[in-house]
Design a protein around this nucleic acid. Structure first.
Length: 297
DNA sequence: CCAATGATAACCTAATTCTG
DNA sequence: CAGAATTAGGTTATCATTGG
């Protein structure tokens, strides 16, 4: 199939965002030519051509033929018409379209705020999240206690166990704590470094790239529970007049976790999460039913 | 009114089983 | 026995409803 290269022809096939994208690039290109002419040799013109020639995946649906076919084959009611077919495709395509990954949303929200752009409701509603992102970056960075373990953009296939979005969400209680929120960004970072640094020191095997998969600590149930605990420990330190920013001061609080069973097989947490939890719940009910049957007899 | 709860999602990855 | 196919394990945002 070929389309004439005239303005607007692509709109027959596709609307809104993608069509407008071409329009924006074309306007930009015209402006560029006006200012620089065609004879610049720095690859910019080629880049524009590459964009113009960008291939769009398009599905063409012959809804008249489809409705005829399903009607003659009597698979669907007689009165089905092309509009019904189009509506069905419209529903499927729009219902199943995928959103931007949640971790990437956090990263983008942070970058938007740090660029000084304000007033976007979804960001302003939970502004504290954008505060956590640079801290997570630093925990994940070189020498950080979570070095290389956080999937910052939510990109699948990176084999990183901790999702940025989950890490951020699990810090909600700490970042709503009035004593904590009044701290500077640097102090907040310092506390979380001390906290996770001490956990890592006490239970290093749960962070090791070779073995973390055998433990629940870096799974969301571990991250959620520990980040929630961080809030309680922070409060406790303040009440006892203990400096929470000194890593060593956190040792006595966290040391008991060394003996906690974090194994994905045998940990008491193992049955609380995912489908494993559902399976165990069902087994427990089977037991109840058996007991009931015995009593009935 | 608003925080907690419940229901749901054409999910994603790892482990296990099947098949040529 | 390798690679494909299937299943198990584990996640997490969103929105309507509920209940204090």
């Amino acid at each position: 199939m070929e389309l004439p290269i005239i303005p607007g022809s692509i709109a027959l096939l596709d609307g809104q965002q993608r069509t407008s994208g071409f329009e924006v690039v074309f306007q930009e290109f015209k402006e560029f030519i006006k200012n620089n002419g065609f004879d610049v040799d720095n690859g910019i013109i080629e880049q524009y051509y590459e964009l113009f020639n960008f291939e769009l995946p398009i599905v063409l649906i012959n809804s008249i033929k489809i409705s005829d076919k399903v009607r003659t084959e009597k698979k669907l009611p007689e009165d089905i018409d092309p509009t019904d077919i189009e509506r069905a495709f419209f529903f499927i395509i729009n219902k199943t379209q995928k959103a931007v990954n949640a971790s990437l949303k956090d990263e983008l929200a942070y970058k938007t705020i740090s660029a000084g752009i304000r007033g976007i409701p979804v960001i302003e509603k939970e502004l504290w999240r954008t505060e956590v992102v640079p801290i997570a970056n630093s925990l994940n960075g070189e020498q950080g206690p979570l070095e290389g373990l956080i999937n910052l953009g939510g990109v699948p296939g990176l084999k990183k166990p901790i999702q940025l979005n989950g890490f951020v969400t699990s810090l909600k209680s700490l970042f709503s704590n009035e004593h904590f929120t009044s701290l500077t960004a640097e102090k907040k970072r310092e506390f979380l470094h001390a906290y996770w640094g001490m956990i890592r020191e006490i239970i290093p095997e749960t962070f090791d790239k070779e073995s973390y998969n055998k433990f629940l600590l870096t799974k969301s149930i571990g991250i959620y529970s520990l980040n929630n605990l961080a809030n309680d420990i922070f409060n406790h330190c303040l009440n006892r007049h203990v400096d929470p920013f000194l890593k060593e001061n956190l040792r006595s609080y966290l040391y008991p976790l060394k003996n906690f069973d974090w194994s994905i097989e045998t940990s008491p947490f193992a049955i609380l999460a995912g489908k494993k939890g559902v399976k165990r719940a069902k087994e427990m009910m089977i037991e109840l039913v058996k007991v009931a049957e015995v009593n009935e007899a």
